[in-house]
Design a protein around this nucleic acid. Structure first.
Lengths: 358, 358
DNA sequence: CTGAAAGCGCTTACAG
DNA sequence: CTGAAAGCGCTTACAG
């Protein structure tokens, strides 16, 4: 390798990067007339280096186009500034919103992001291993169900695990999530308040953590109002499947007058199903979604929904990341970010049945 | 560090990973009674090791929970099996579809994916630098506009650059993209064929590479049919902004009877605008989108659109990646993947004005 | 097939 | 403030 160094001279006025040959700390040290240690210190925040040295090194580094190898740094250093995110397939527009916000926030603080698909193994443990293999500072798990065993393995290995959107009662494993239970409650209270009496929940049949929590909050609040919730479960979150399930529900023997869907995507499919069977929304049927994705605001949907506090969840994750890195032994923390209701046109005005009351 | 090794004994029947202490190749070598080189060979495909050695090493490695450090491997080896993807903000559902497919395809071949936001700098050069810093096998650029200078820098440094959705005429820089021009042509031909005569293009005003190409194909085919295309540009791709622009266009002095939008998202906003101003789609106005995102198929949209061949583009990228790694000096290649037309309900039946002809 | 040695590019105590 | 030395965890020629 070294043999061909400089065989191919630069012909342009660009940094002197010979083909295939990386500029190393030694090159900079040699040309600047200092030791590699000195160069290293100049590139390390808070390390001691005289102004003269700093200037010499910086100049040479710039001229040579030197950049410290993150691989070498990671190998020897204690922190890599790298975080691994375990995600599932991004089948819902919401997933992109979340990833976008997280990626942006991490980039803003100079943290690199590596992706690992939860993919085949439900536990997403291949993602954890990948995080370990690259010595990630932490792994953020936003998909699948993590087993306590795997979580424990990571924590022992010194890899902080932060769960997004799910909770695991394992020592050292932090969680950040939207207050799904609260959001479900808000949905139920809105529907009840606006006169709905036959409430239904359209969800994944408990297939995901969020789905279970949202139903719990919804059913709980409904129950307090003396209403029992009918649930419809759909195996696949695909639009067509949900549309069909909703159509069956609406055309069935006990159609609801108030529906809460696990996600906006499902709620939108329900709106279309309502139209298909000739139900008027919100006159015959009120619908509430969850997430507040852009499509919820579209003119043809105007979906009332529970707003997922993405920014809050993301900053919660960064917060917990910092805290955990600062103190690896701190107690686990679960942070639930409050949701808000965004009332649009798929629910009725307040108190329609109280019209005329004082 | 080493001092605390084994201070905290394992209490469970899990691999022996002492707190904070990584199992290294030396540990495995020592316990297996072989040299580190031997262990390395066992973990290297196609390296020579006797069956006895292999078995011993593998057993010990499993018991100890040993995994080769990718950092160390990357530092010393010639390939890292790591690819960096430069993406912009994921404001369109399409972005998630693409990333999802790419991530899945890379994972399937055992390649790790690192994310770099194009973010602030339009050139996305920070992403390139990040790719360099981690010794990525290649960088896939799917956002922003890359300057020839930066591309050249990467190629010189031995970092293959693969452009997705854009083309750059620089040596060694490969590209894969949907045939935008062809797609635009298909849209125009469909509209003309179904009787539209006043064609309009709703796009980003040439802000992106795709936008320019789609308009080019559309306007070219329209021109061959003797029709001049009116273009409407929108600065922000936000739904509300597009809705307003489309409303203005439709309510303006020269409303079109056939509209081609740069993306499905924009086309859907246009559908809603048409409804808002009382235009009937497709009777008064035909609309064609681009991408074929899930929402295009929704009952309330039923959007006729040009299908973006995501799978084809992704496999093209992997293909070019392999080729480039196998032969770094090969000529640059631009691969355009054919698009297809998905005809739904926002365009008319064929030849409505020829009704009665033989 | 196998091990000793050198090296990847960097940082971290350690003396000065 | 500075440099020599050791080491991070691995692989790659090089002899055997």
């Amino acid at each position: 390798m070294r043999v061909i160094k400089n065989v191919c001279k630069n012909d342009a006025a660009l940094p002197i990067i010979s083909a295939m040959t990386r500029v190393t700390i030694k090159d900079v040290a040699r040309i600047a007339g200092v030791s590699p240690s000195a160069v290293s210190r100049v590139f390390t925040d808070g390390a001691s280096a005289s102004e003269a040295t700093r200037e010499k090194v910086l100049t040479v580094a710039r001229d040579l186009g030197y950049r410290p190898s993150l691989l070498a740094r990671g190998l020897v250093g204690t922190r890599t500034n790298l975080v691994t995110l375990v995600m599932g397939r991004m089948h819902d527009p919401f997933d992109a919103l979340f990833l976008d916000e997280l990626a942006e926030a991490l980039a803003a603080r100079g943290t690199r992001l590596m992706l690992a698909s939860a993919g085949r193994d439900a536990a997403g443990d291949s993602g954890l291993l990948q995080a370990l293999d690259y010595k990630s500072d932490a792994v953020i798990v936003a998909a699948g169900t993590m087993s306590p065993e795997h979580a424990d393995l990571c924590v022992r290995a010194g890899l902080p695990v932060i769960l997004s959107g799910r909770v695991l009662d394992a020592p050292g494993v932090d969680s950040v999530l939207a207050d799904n239970v609260g959001g479900g409650r808000q949905a139920a209270e809105l529907l009840v308040r606006t006169g709905c009496r036959r409430l239904a929940y359209l969800g994944r049949g408990g297939a995901t953590f969020s789905d279970r929590e949202r139903l719990k909050g919804f059913a709980g609040a409904a129950s307090r109002a003396g209403i029992e919730v009918a649930t419809t479960a759909v195996a696949d979150r695909d639009h067509g499947t949900v549309f069909q399930a909703a159509t069956d529900l609406f055309a069935g023997p006990a159609p609801p007058d108030g529906l809460f869907a696990s996600t906006d995507s499902m709620a939108i499919a329900a709106i279309e199903a309502a139209r298909a069977v000739g139900l008027s929304v919100p006159d015959d049927l009120s619908i509430v979604g969850f997430n507040n994705v852009p499509a919820a605001a579209w003119r043809s949907n105007q979906l009332t929904t529970v707003d997922y506090p993405i920014a809050g969840v993301v900053s919660g994750i960064l917060d917990l990341l910092d805290s955990r890195l600062a103190d690896p032994d701190r107690a686990r923390e679960v942070r639930r970010i409050p949701t808000g209701l965004v009332v649009r046109a798929t629910t009725r005005e307040k108190h329609p049945h109280r019209r005329g009351c004082p």
